[in-house]
Design a protein around this nucleic acid. Sequence first.
DNA 1: TAACAATCTTAGAGTTAGTCTAAATAGTGT
DNA 2: ACACTATTTAGACTAACTCTAAGATTGTTA
Lengths: 140, 140
Amino acid sequence: MDTAETVLASRGVRPTPQRVVITEYLLNTKSHPTADQVLEAVANALPVQLSRATVYNTLHTLVEAGVIQEVYTEPGGCARYDANTERHHHFVDTKNGCIYDIPFEAVPSLDKSLDDNYKVSNYTVTFFGEPKQGQPKQES
Amino acid sequence: MDTAETVLASRGVRPTPQRVVITEYLLNTKSHPTADQVLEAVANALPVQLSRATVYNTLHTLVEAGVIQEVYTEPGGCARYDANTERHHHFVDTKNGCIYDIPFEAVPSLDKSLDDNYKVSNYTVTFFGEPKQGQPKQES
DNA sequence: TAACAATCTTAGAGTTAGTCTAAATAGTGT
DNA sequence: ACACTATTTAGACTAACTCTAAGATTGTTA
């Protein structure tokens, strides 16, 4: 079991107290928190004030180091952060706006479909519609 | 050839001068302008001041009436508006942010790929990468 | 281990892309 | 013409960041 310190050190990120608590929080939640949610959740785990700027700095550092992923679910919405760094697509429930993660493998590969004219390095698919019965409830 | 007035009238949207010039601009560009670009492009085609609020009101009205589409290309980026309301996908040039329309048929159908768990009514694919040689230059 | 440079954090100001509000104006039906 | 609704406007407001300048902390070198 990797501690936040270990993870940070192994990626060459100096494990300051602020970075450690933020990383710990992200490694231990399955939700996709916003920057503000991270700030709120983590603020009183530190003996000092935690600044908004530090939260953003740290999140960007962690993204660059590959520890977390920045995810946009709602179009036009704010960034969410996810310690699960696997590629995935999204399904938007048009009735209520809920968003479900779709595993990357659930969708046939489109890597080659524009080969004639474009060099594709990445792509994302957003589906719209309604879940059928029995979909697992998932935090957005 | 449909004029902006005709299009608006046929969708039950009262063709005010502000709406007409905005619609004209969008029907005649292949670019995917932001709200601010619409404002800048259209402002001096009117004898009166054009307010930012009116631009947003009009864009929302046009989206609801099905005259244009709201498109989000860059994750976390701002809304862009597209008078091409045919189903299509987008390719984002990661070097310069230019956006190209990808015909719907250029991508294999994904309508059935989530059939087990979801009723999919629509989907869009956004590709990221670089165009190969000889792509037609297109405004972003 | 003292000096100093580099890195990190902070509060708060600034920016962007909108949304909201209240008042003025324009258009519609009778 | 009169009441009523729809539309537009300027500008205040908001959310989600981003930037800045100063101070704190840490690491490095002598």
